[in-house]
């Protein structure tokens, strides 16, 4: 059984100038516990894809399933991390991590234990009583990651989660995420603009074309795990990155010079 299965997903938005296709025939199948990155230029429908998988948006055509169960609407086995931490500033770190449990009406006592476990997983065990404004951007994003895992989701959807962080924090967070992923064994769909980030983290990378998003390439990354910063210096890593740059960059360069 696949962790994530998408078949010919299409999304068209109605606009004043007719219908606009955001995503066209998106198909992918990812085994349970796999790490998939979706990469592509701005406006290629990456965020549309995420909303689809979260059940917040219905596809115009096609279907998708998580662990064999079709996505028909909002579902409880999905965790989401956005570009911004989007924490509730009026609540402590712990209470922020507990939000999914409260929203789903789960057992708060058990949730609290789980939340504290996750906070130590992301290295914030001493910050459970702090408020978001007392934390750095990287720490806030870790809280958001802990929050996305608290209700034991099967799939983690991450929408450019490190895009708002500074370059140094970003590199550390890549290592962190790999560690968390290897420990928890979640299926992850990771949306990003960064080629090295995608190559570093993923088992699979799907490259989307400019709007409407179409799958241009679906490649498997066989680099051994766990990967570290040395991996990024290897020729194999560089080759994959270059291949991806060709796939993404050249059509746009051609357009620009045309």
């Amino acid at each position: 059984m696949n962790g994530l299965e998408a078949e010919n997903l299409c999304v068209t938005y109605a606009s004043s100038r007719g219908s606009v296709a955001a995503l066209e025939d998106f198909s992918v199948s990812l085994p349970r516990g796999g790490f998939l990155s979706v990469i592509g230029p701005s406006g290629c429908g990456k965020s549309t894809l995420l909303r689809l998988l979260a059940g917040l948006l219905k596809p115009t055509r096609g279907s998708a399933s998580i662990d064999g169960a079709p996505i028909a609407g909002p579902r409880r086995d999905v965790g989401i991390v956005f570009q911004q931490p989007t924490l509730m500033p009026w609540h402590s770190t712990l209470e922020n991590v507990l939000l999914p449990i409260r929203a789903l009406g789960g057992d708060i006592g058990a949730g609290r234990t789980k939340a504290l476990e996750l906070l130590s997983l992301v290295g914030l065990e001493n910050f459970s009583k702090h408020f978001p404004y007392e934390l750095s951007g990287g720490m806030q994003q870790r809280v958001a990651i802990a929050r996305s895992l608290v209700h034991d989701p099967s799939v983690l959807l991450m929408d450019e989660p490190f895009a708002a962080l500074d370059a140094l924090t970003r590199e550390l967070m890549m290592l962190e995420l790999q560690r968390i992923w290897m420990l928890t064994g979640r299926t992850i769909v990771f949306i990003t603009h960064s080629i090295p980030e995608a190559v570093f983290l993923s088992d699979r990378i799907v490259v989307l074309s400019p709007r409407p998003g179409r799958v241009v390439e679906d490649m498997t990354i066989g680099l051994p795990r766990p990967r570290d910063f040395k991996t990024m210096g290897t020729p194999a890593f560089g080759d994959i990155c270059n291949r991806l740059r060709e796939l993404i960059g050249y059509p746009q360069l051609a357009e620009a010079t045309a």
């Binding site: 979260a54 917040l56 909002p74 409880r76 989401i80 956005f82 999914p100 929203a103 789903l104």
Partner: peptide
């Protein structure tokens, strides 16, 4: 969106 995704 997050709350909606959890059917809150």
């Amino acid at each position: 969106d997050l709350m909606r995704a959890f059917s809150a």
